[in-house]
Design a protein around this nucleic acid. Structure first.
Lengths: 89, 89
DNA sequence: AAAGTATTTAGATATTTGTCTAAATATATA
DNA sequence: TATATATTTAGACAAATATCTAAATACTTT
């Protein structure tokens, strides 16, 4: 879960996930939505990929990124397990 | 949500939350469970408190920490909203 | 009041992180 | 094949972070 929490601990990366919610996009299309250089966005995409939160597929000179939410299942379970905690004594 | 993801992006802090799941504990009792200095644990507790994930109550010379999971509601909603994304076209 | 215990604050340091520009790689097109 | 486009890799740098030791604060006990 380390990589996952690390990937989510950045507002730019969280925004990337949000825009991928609607539609798969190329790296360039993603970068166009931020005031950050393309190499920086590329680096963010790499961290998201390492966490498994996005999947990349090459199509010609483009690379399409898409959201993968299944990796969050374990994290969700962890959070929910915390929520069922003891009551005040 | 920034403070929340930041607080969760550290395995020591996540472990602290796990041990507080069972029982409220003093700062010292928490520190005893880690091979990390007390000041460092104190700092971790401060970050958890800033995120609202723990609440501290002073009792004499002790400070009791307890888990507060309600602050994760917004985060959970955000994660779940990501999960209902478009299907592959 | 003095000494002991619990915890935090202050300040230092090494590591990690987010960002940039410049260069490299890969594909497409004229 | 030469040029343009899309993306990443490399290397640098400033800011943030996790940790430490030493000192300060606050409470308790003798």
């Amino acid at each position: 879960m380390n990589n996952l929490f690390k990937a989510l601990n950045d507002s730019t990366r969280r925004e990337i996930l949000e825009i991928l919610k609607d539609k798969d996009l190329t790296a360039g299309e993603i970068a166009d939505q931020f005031n950050i250089s393309k190499p920086s966005i590329s680096h963010h995409l790499d961290l998201l990929r390492q966490a498994g939160l996005v999947v990349s597929v090459k199509d010609g000179q483009y690379i399409y990124y898409s959201l993968n939410t299944t990796v969050m299942d374990e994290m969700l379970k962890w959070i929910i397990s915390l929520q069922s905690h003891k009551n005040k004594s």
